[in-house]
């Protein structure tokens, strides 16, 4: 995780920052009065964030959990229904499919996003004229500044079956028109492509930062040992980049799990339920059908799943992430 931070004394510091789940060296004096005033300052500094989060995140989460046991349509008073909402949600095939979609989406989109970002970052960071490097970096970063909603709007036209530009190019290669937005496979592909198109730039920048923090001596040593080309990247770049990869993948997964804008604008979740995601189901049941209790129940389940995935990720990372 070190890579997002400008640093003066890498790479030792980098390793320390990576393990940063444990706090670093306390910076100020160790006297009793020092500790006392530190504590005061700490609470003052933390107050806005902690109070804000308590009010706008923790209380709502608790409220959500409570709401999951009620039937409530906003118009009339809520009634307690016990586990009914959970029972209904678990049986609802649409909910089940949308959760599976979300997981499949996360796996494919994150793999594509990270793979693409890493490959491009490695290619950009090797020797080339400075102006070209600047151009490539800016180009890959560019989609990030657009809103997912507007990207989805124009992508819808590009992927139109009869008149879209994408199929026109494919037709040049002799490929018959692909029904992108009207078949389950096609629309899932479009949602993934559009999502990755817009988001790979962020992982790309993280990888650029990560690559920059790998000391050149490491490569010099590796090339003395005869490692060249591919092998150099497999044996040197990948292991040394693993902290960045962990950060990039955690962030990519968290954001992919919450994908909403692209399918909402591109396909509205269809055809069938093929591009309906978990958060779309929450939105639909809360704000289109006014089933706030049911929506909360889905939300609670989703949150538990996300937490489990993230915990598993950190578990795995202990085994696979290499710290210098």
């Amino acid at each position: 995780m070190s890579t997002t931070i400008p640093r003066r004394d890498r790479p030792k510091q980098a390793a320390k920052a990576v393990k940063a789940v444990k706090p670093g060296t306390p910076a100020t004096s160790q006297t009793a009065s020092g500790r006392h005033s530190q504590r005061w300052l700490a609470w003052i500094f933390l107050a806005p964030t902690i109070l804000g989060m308590g009010l706008f995140t923790l209380v709502p989460i608790a409220a959500s959990v409570v709401l999951a046991f009620f039937r409530w349509d906003i118009i009339s008073a809520p009634t307690f229904v016990g586990f009914d909402n959970f029972a209904e949600v678990v049986q609802d095939p649409t909910v089940r499919v949308s959760f599976l979609n979300t997981i499949a989406f996360v796996i494919v989109a994150v793999a594509l996003q990270l793979g693409l970002a890493l490959a491009l970052a490695v290619m950009v960071q090797e020797k080339m004229p400075a102006w070209l490097r600047t151009f490539f970096r800016s180009a890959f970063f560019f989609p990030l500044i657009l809103s997912a909603a507007s990207v989805s709007i124009f992508m819808r036209y590009l992927f139109n079956e009869q008149f879209g530009v994408v199929n026109w190019f494919l037709s040049l290669a002799g490929i018959p028109a692909v029904p992108w937005l009207t078949t389950p496979g096609g629309s899932a592909a479009v949602v993934i492509l559009v999502y990755v198109w817009q988001n790979f730039g962020f992982s790309f920048l993280l990888f650029i930062g990560g690559l920059a923090s790998i000391p050149m001596e490491t490569y010099e040593a590796a090339s003395l040992d005869g490692a060249t080309g591919w092998r150099k990247h497999v044996y040197v770049t990948l292991p040394l980049l693993s902290p960045t990869t962990l950060l990039a993948s955690v962030m990519a997964i968290i954001s992919a799990l919450q994908v909403f804008d692209q399918p909402y604008v591109l396909t509205r979740g269809g055809p069938g339920d093929s591009t309906r995601t978990a958060v779309m189901v929450i939105f639909e049941s809360a704000f289109q059908r006014l089933e706030f209790g049911e929506a909360s129940a889905i939300g609670v389940i989703l949150t538990l799943i996300i937490m489990a995935i993230t915990a598993a990720q950190f578990r795995l990372s202990k085994r696979f992430v290499f710290y210098q």
């Binding site: 029904p179 009207t182 078949t183 389950p184 269809g270 069938g272």
Partner: peptide, 12 residues
């Protein structure tokens, strides 16, 4: 929603 999500599949 129930109608729309099944139309494309039905006709294609």
């Amino acid at each position: 929603t129930a109608l729309m999500k099944n139309v494309s599949l039905a006709v294609s």
